[in-house]
Each structure stands twice: as structure tokens, then as C-alpha cells.
Nucleic acid binder design. Sequence first.
RNA 1: GACCCCGUCGUCCAGCCUGGUCUAGGACACAGGCCUUUCAAGCCUGGAACACGGGUUCGAAUCCCGUCGGGGUCGCCA
Length: 488
Amino acid sequence: MNNVKDPVVVRFAPSPTGMLHVGNARTALFNWLFAKSTGGRFILRIEDTDCDRSTSEYTKMILDNIRWLGLSWDEGPGKGGDNGPYLQSERLVSYREKAEILIKEKKAYRCYCTQEELEIRKQEAVSQGKQPIYDGKCRNLTAEDIQKHDEKGSGYTVRFIVEPQELIVEDLIRGQVRFDLSLYGDFIIMKSNGYPSFHFAVALDDALMGVTHVIRGEDHLPNTPRHMLLFRSFGVITPQFGHLSMILGPDGQRLSKRHGVTSVDEYRQKGYPPQALVNYLALLGWSPGDGQELFSVEELINKFSLKGISKSASIFDPQKLDWVSSNYIHKEDPSDIAIHSIPFLQDAGIDYVDEDYVVKAMAVLKLSLITYSDVVQKGSFFWNKEYEFNDEAIEVLERCEVGKFIEVLLVNLKDWVEGSMPGEAVRNASLASGIKGKEIYHGIRAAITGMVSGPDLAGIVNTLGPERVQKRLKCVLQKFWMADKNES
RNA sequence: GACCCCGUCGUCCAGCCUGGUCUAGGACACAGGCCUUUCAAGCCUGGAACACGGGUUCGAAUCCCGUCGGGGUCGCCA
């Protein structure tokens, strides 16, 4: 096994057959944290051996999402390194050569069985109550048999020989796991299209790239014996394995589209700070043991340890993500929030006046934000001259007493030209109209924001300034109270 | 079906390895309250779990066995 002093080399190896999923993202994160916390290297490798489903668009997006999360790689696409190339489709020669060597060494053999034959024999096995594994038909083909097949031009796969035996996986997270290899059968390492199978490509690449720790999803645990066999046949040290439990949807089922947001990119588009997603994902299946839940990336690196990883599956909780995210934004400087939010304002086609104004608004808005995109809705009264009134606000404003109060307030506010709204004017208006407490603040808020809840009212008034506030009050008076009065 | 993994509040975790300090702790969510002459934020309080059954032991959430439940894998997908 590996010497403790050997530097850690880990990798994250997504296949570009879809978007980067939160489950994969957590796997990437744990690998990255493990590398960072041990001073090791983090390699990124793209497993694009599924010609039908892999696309370069997905590769691009996955890379982009990993970058967005802040998980920089030491070797990989766009970065280079001593163990490249980092796209499996560019490493075909090594797989083919190695497969030939394994055949020569009698550790693998050509298999001419067609998929149809395989399917039929599998059905037979199942109907007889046997394991549906490859029966080894082509294992002992003679040279003549092979020649005959080749003359016919039959395609073939290459299968790796699995001898029945017990194999023990020493899992970093799960401990000893025993497998009975008589249940496995000879598996394919080269497909008939000349591409390596997943098992072969992973094992060879991990061997060639000097990977010391393979941290991946639990769905790969049953594959691990195959990979270990392959490492042994290469004559290299087998890396250590650690299998992470799955992330499940709210219904306890495997994460899928119907659970709503599952891809990293969607969270990005929704305006979650990447650090918040990283923080939440770290919490899902890992704990520092001391109860801390909010971390900077540096703290995460310092505290991370394989020991803190839990064995049981965990359910993704969007509400807790929101909590982490809001905590993150609460601590951020208004100017930084502005930088991250402005793209959302622009996308919404909002004329936000100028950056200084946005920064000022963020200072009062930030406590209401869960994501950066929230600024559009939750701060709409900051950006739009023609802000909308929601039902609750209309209900408040349609009361005649509120109109009376606002009318008096406007008169009292005549000399107000700068700073915050004079408390004296409010008090006098309250006295004169007989309206007080809850009503007056509700009224002012509803009038100038169109909502009955939101950020600190004084802050809003301050940011909007005397001119805008008075104008809005006048408009509201016109719109709600005057109309009412005329009718009655 | 076979094999493998897992099983503490609704959810995420701590405790389990090295049995007693656990009348099981924290967080999210939920409920109530405080603060603010509004709402939000913040603060406080509350309800809420050791899957079940055996065994070992003076003593088990912690160790052992079984049952049940959930998940995973059985592809020329990865």
C-alpha cells in the first residue's frame, strides 16, 4: 500500500454526458479538499469514451462549473501537466497497447460473441436461476478459431480474465468490504469500436497518472474489485479507495430532474454564491465534529478530513442551502453584492441609475437576500419608477385613514430636502391624523415600496432620498385616496 | 432475484471505534415569544429521534446475531 509520506494525488473524472450534478460536484469538492488539506495534487480528467453520449459542449460546461465553484485543478484540460492528455478520447493508443500486452500475458482475450448471443445466453442463465455473467465461451479459443473469425472480419471485444476468489476492498470510508469474484465473470476492457471500457480506462489512467486515492461515489463500490484486479495486472500499487454515499432527493430517491434543481449550473443561474454552494455541499455527508456549519474555503481546507465523512446517504435540502447562502450574503460588503447582482439587474432589463446607488441600496437590501438574483424582485422599488403594488399593500393603502395620514405627512415634509425623513414630521402627522403605530409605518412602506414587508424602512427612505419619497407619496395619494374620496 | 452498502429528531450532522459522563447535543425547517410605534433581520423558548427483536453485560444509541426498511450494482453506460 501507499507510503504515508507519499504525496496525495487525487482526481475528479466526470463523463461529459450531461450537466455537472450536485452529487458529482460534492465528489469533486471532497477530492479537492483532500488534496488541498494534504498538500497533494488534484487532477481533472474527462472520461469521454462513450462516443454516443459525450459532447464537447458538456465538457465545456462541466469545466466551467468546476471553475465557478472555485475548484482549481493542478493538472487537466486547459492547464496541462506531465500526465496528459486529460481527455480519454486522446489516450486511445495507450489503452490499445496495454490491451495487447494483457492478451499476450494471457490475462485477457479476444471475445467474438455478439451482443445478441450474449443476451440470449444471459436469459438462459437467468431462467435456470444462475448468475447472468459472461460464461467464458471465448476464453480458450484456439489460434485457428481466432483466425477464422478474423478472416470473416468479425468484430471482437477484449475481456479480462477474472479468477474466482475472494477479494477484500479496504475502503477508506466503509472499512473492509468482501467480494466473491465467482459472481463477476470476465469483463470487457476494450469495446468492439476500439474504445476502452470504463473499467479499463479508469484503472489504466489512474495507474499512469499516479493516482494515490480514488474518492468517488458509492455506486462504484461494486466495480472496485475489477479495478483492483486491473491494477494488479499492471504491476502497480493499487490506490486507496473511498466511496462516498449517495445524495438523494427530498423523497429519498436518487437525485433526478423531477426533484427540481440538481445541476450546478442552475444554482449558478439562480444567483447562489459559489462559496455558499460549496459550503452546503461540504456539510452534506461531512462534519468537522465540532458543530461548525459556516466556513470560509480556507477553514474548510484546514478542517477537512476523510474521518469526518459519514457513511449514510443524505437528502439534499434546498432550505438549508438557502440558509447558508443568506448567511454568506449577509456578511458580504455591499459593494461586492452589487458586483454580483448587477448582471441580474441587467438581465432583467432594469435601469438601475448608477453603481453608487446600487451599492447604497445593497446596504439596506442585503439582509433580505438569499441569492443575488433576489435583488430584482425584493428590491424592485429601488430600481423601478413604476413599481407594482401587491395585494397586501393595496389593502393597506385603500384605508381612508392612511390616506389622511399621508396627506398631512406630505405637508409636513415640505422643507425636507436631505438626510433621513424627519421623525418630527412623522409624529406631527400621526397626531394630526390620529393614525399611529403599526398603521403609519405600514402605510409609508406600502406607499413607497408597494410591499408590506422588506428591508429596514429608514434605510429605504434614506436611499431613495427626499425627492423620490415625496413624489411617491403624492402618487399614492392620487391613486388610492383621492379616488376613494371622490367615490364616497 | 443475487451480491454489496446504509439505518440517531421531518432534514443535515455530533455521539458509536475506546460500553456508564446521553433524562441523546448542534443546525435547518416548524411553533411561540422578545426587540423594533411596521415587516424583515437578530435574540430567546418549545415540540421533535437512538428502525424492530433477541443476546453479551451490573450497565448498550454504542458490542454480537437476526428481522425489517432504504439505497446501490449486476451493460460493448460511466
